[in-house]
Structure formats: C-alpha cells, structure tokens
Design a protein around this nucleic acid. Structure first.
Lengths: 318, 318
DNA sequence: ATGAAAGCGCTAACAC
DNA sequence: GTGTTAGCGCTTTCAT
C-alpha cells in the first residue's frame, strides 16, 4: 500500500511525468491506451498523490481551512460542512476544520506550515485573523467577501416583518446572554430596528436571555408584558422564553408573541408550536462553496443573485 | 514573509542543516551564540517550517485528524476540540477536524494524501473507516483503544441505577429514531438491560422516538403508561417525551419517569427540571489527548485509572 | 561544532 | 506522444 507515482509509472511501463499528466487532467495529450494503462495501474495500486509532494512542488496545498464559529455546533452546521467537504473534494480540495477560537498564534503556525489554498469562515474574520492571513498571503474568504447581502440583517428584518404582519406593534429583541455564542446578534437587532422604524413603531426593547428557566423568567420581567412581540436570537432563546412564559402564567401569543431562528429539532416539540425561520444551510453552503471555488479559479462563475436561504416556518407563537 | 530555512540560514550566517538542528531541539549541540543567532533570525523573519517539506522528508505529517461524530453534543464539543488543539500544538502537532460522515472514499484520499500522524475519533471507527486506516497504515485512536471502560454501557447502567433508586421497576429505553444520530444507543440499552437483570426486574421495553411532538406522543402510546421509567438516548429525546407527556395529560414523574443524557442547555428549561447525566468533555478530552500523545511517543505515560467523566444531574423527572 | 550532500514525491518546462 | 531534468523545503547521516 501507499504507492507512489514511481510505482504507478513502473507498473504501467511509462515515466512518472506521464503518470502525473494523465492523472491531472491532461490524459488527452496521450495515446488512449497509454492513458488507460495509467488509470488502471493507479486504481490497482490504490495510488493517491502525496499532498506533501504536490504542495512542495506547487507552492500551496490542496487544503481549504474552514474556521468554525464559536457558536453552538448543532446538526445544521454539521450538514453544512459535510456538504462542503464533499463538493470541495470533487474539485480536488480537501476541507479541514479548525476552531476559530484557538489563539491566533497557532493559526499563524498552521497557515504558514500548511499553506492552504484558502481559508474560509462563516463569520467575518477578526482583525487578528485578518492580519495573519494577509501577512501569510493566503486567499481569505469570509461573508463580506462572499455576498453583498447581509444575511443577519435580513434575518432581523424577516422576524420583524412576521411580527408586524401578526399585528404586533411593540417589538423587542432577545439576545443570547453569553456573547461568545452570539456572533450575529447585533446585525439582526439592527434589521429588526429598521422594520420598526419603517412602520413607525416605537423603538425596540432589548434583553439578554440565558438558557435557564429562572434567568429567562427574570429577563421576561424586564419587558413590558403583556403585549410585547419578541424576535429571538435563536430557537433556544425562544424556547427558554416560552417556558418562562408558561411558568409566569402568560399565554402565547396572546400576552407575548415569539419568533425564533434556526428551526432546531427541538423547536418542533414546543407547545404551542414555535414560529421560526429556517436557514437553508445546504443552499448557503452551495453559494459559499461556489464563490470559494471561483476564487480558487476552479468551478463555475459566481451566481449573480444570492440564493434564497431564509424561509418562514409557520407556528402558533405569533 | 514566508521565509524558508535557507533564508534563516543566510540571515544567521550558518547552514540550513544547522538551522534545522537548532530549531528541532538539538540546540545544545552548538555553540550557544550560534543557537542564539538562529533563534533570533527565525523570529525576525517569522519563519515557520513548511509542513510539506517536513512531511516529505519524514514520511508523515504533523497533522492529527479528529473525526467529528455526526451528533449534536451541545456546545461542549467546541471546548473539547479547542483544548485538544492547544495541547497538541504544544507538542508540535496540528489538529484538524473532519466530518466523520463524509464518504469513506474521501477519507481514504485525505489519509493517503496528508499522511497524518494519527487519526482520532470520539466514537468507535466504523468498519469502513477501520479498513481505510489499516490499509493506509495510520495510527488510529478511538475510544476502545483509549480505555477498557465502555462508557456507553456505563451510561446505560447509570441511568438504570438512577431509575431503580427512584423506586421504579418497569424500565424502558428510548432510542432516537434517526439512526444516523444515534451511534451509541445500543451499548447504552445494553447497560440498562444489565441493571434490570441484576435487580430481577422485567425486561426493558424499547421505543424509537422522533424529535416531533406528534410522533413522540405516538411513541409514548407504545409503552404501557402510566408506570414506566424511561432512560433516554439524549436530552432531546427526553424533552420530546416530556412535551408529549404534557400533551397527553400525564404527570411526570408520577405517571412517567424520565432520565436524559448530555445535560444540554435546553434541558435546563424543562418543567419539571430534567434529571440527566453530564459527560465531562474536558476530562474526556484530557484523557484522550494524553493517550494520543503517548501513542505518538510524546507526552506522559498513560494514566492508570480512567477519569470520572459521568455525573448525575438531579432533576424532578424521576 | 558545523557543513555538504542526498533524497522524500511531485509536477512543469523542455527535449526528443 | 512521451521521457528527462530540475527543484520545491526539509532533515539526516556523514565528513570535516
């Protein structure tokens, strides 16, 4: 096992250069039967090119590094990265994941050492990260460079529109208290604010919510219930407020309207069923991957329109 | 930027061989002032050794691949991998993450191409994965090779013990219906069965539960309620059954006892508060990292005793 | 105490 | 059409 291109060359009775060319998409330069012999030998020997050898020669590797947001790592994100892994593999790239939180110095080491073809992030790079990436001269892709659409603002707007549509006029935004888990909140709050302004509604109230019954209940106490309509950072926040409302004897949506975000599995067991927004990770990953590939010089041209990745999931909490 | 060892050598006025030796822990072979010059030059130029060059020379890279289980472990997962990233970096290894689900063929490609120092998984390797790893001759570390303790069986036993302790005699095990998300269920069910046997209780009933109110309610209908005590695959399953019980007008724990697993954030907003089991990821990561390092020939000897990573979280559902 | 030389596996330019 | 050659950056004998 672990055949090299020399082994393949020997087995096929050709030179290493020929093996390399054939296996790298220039098969048509050769006699069909030569190419066939090469393919057959490679398959028979289980040959896979050495990433190290190739990287050394080409100056950069086939690795694409994705920085994982320091946010709850649920099933959705997993699906997203899984799809990216597969799509990138189709184009010869290998996706590896990396915790974004880990110190910038170790990021630097990794970048410098592994010379990835690109570094990708779902959230904007921090200044430290950006500095490292620039210094090491790596293709860096983050949301601002992928799309002009600010999805987080759009999410806030969509939540606001749904609440207004339901006849509510006093809007509030509920952040997740632990900021580490809420990298998107402020843009969403801003989207909600915009909707309030556009409809001439009073300014939105803001609360921080912990995923804890007592503390969520206390947060509810900060708002002027009944009569408030809350756009939540995610479904966990919404579920916490829903439970708190029940404990406080408030009826949803009569006394308190709620809209979540993410359509988590657990939001399906809420009583009453949670109104929420679904983010189509697969579509988003497709768009992200597409612009990544394009930036890498592979793949199709960038789609002109941003894909529709947000959809409202009807429930009974508005 | 992106200096090579030649650059450092030139800058320090020594040979590349000297740079390599000094920077790889053999500084004391040289005159102190020579070593100092090398260190200074390396730092000044921001030199980081090329992973490709090193891997090519050494035959295997400094990468350690961690396979991510396709399961939602709550936010703890991140803390775990972040800690592993840092600890391994201290020993010169670079941790990269990889979705376990992605087809075995792309795993093979990655392993063959990147020649990682080790592949690590929190869940036992599948037969496919094991085959790939063996064939490519890679150091493979999974829980069975880390510890003789079967944590999943231990979890089932712990759940059973808690239910028996609470005076319940008719035990049941609730799997998550989507098998893709339930890689550990059967070992846990087996642990529960053992407890039932040891206490002379009737055999445990088994149900599959979906995270969906109606379907969870139907699952409840399959069990002989009231009077059953259910060990759940995870807190999500427990929360679904809790909501279903409420809809059906069953009182917990009088008509139905429940114990979850994972202590997710959301289990803290259950009413009544969910009794569950917490898995100490950080301790587990510490143990895993230790044995990984030992297997790699670095690091301290393997701790003799398995760390205590499971603890019962009191609630009101038993 | 330090340097010269060889070679890991690969691919691109060029020769034939 | 196919092979020869050179060299990517590194580490490791082996000389000196």
């Amino acid at each position: 096992m672990n055949a090299t291109s020399s082994d393949v060359a020997k087995h096929a009775g050709v030179s290493r250069a020929t093996v390399s060319q054939v296996l790298n998409g220039y098969a048509e330069r050769f006699a069909p039967e030569t190419a066939a012999k090469v393919f057959a030998s490679a398959a028979e020997l289980g040959y896979e090119p050495s990433a190290a050898g190739r990287a050394l020669r080409r100056g950069s590797s086939d690795f694409v590094v994705a920085l994982l947001p320091h946010t709850t790592f649920g099933g959705n994100l997993q699906d997203l990265f899984e799809q990216m892994t597969v799509t990138l593999a189709d184009h010869g790239y290998t996706l590896v994941l990396r915790m974004a939180g880990s110190a910038a110095s170790t990021l630097d080491k990794m970048i410098a050492g592994m010379k990835p073809a690109a570094v990708f992030s779902l959230t904007p790079f921090t200044d430290d990260e950006r500095a490292v990436l620039d210094r090491r001269n790596v293709l860096a892709i983050d949301p601002p460079s992928v799309s002009q659409v600010d999805y987080n603002r759009a999410i806030g707007r969509m939540q606001g529109a749904a609440l207004v549509e339901g006849g509510h006029t006093r809007l509030a935004y509920a952040h997740l208290r632990d900021e580490r888990h809420d990298p998107f909140g402020f843009a969403r709050e801003e989207g909600l604010r915009e909707v309030a302004r556009e409809h001439g509604l009073p300014d939105v109230q803001v609360v921080d919510v912990s995923i804890d019954l007592d503390r969520a209940s206390a947060s509810l106490g900060e708002l002027a219930v009944p009569g408030v309509a809350i756009a939540c950072y995610n479904d966990d926040v919404a579920m916490a407020l829903l439970a708190a409302a029940r404990v406080r004897g408030l009826e949803v949506p009569r006394d308190l309207a709620l809209i979540g975000m993410d359509r988590t599995d657990l939001s399906r067991i809420a009583v009453p069923r949670l109104t929420t927004i679904e983010y189509d990770m697969v579509a988003a990953a497709g768009a992200g991957t597409a612009s990544l590939l394009q930036a890498l010089g592979a793949g199709a041209p960038r789609p002109t329109a941003a894909p529709a990745v947000l959809s409202l999931i009807a429930g009974e909490t508005i």
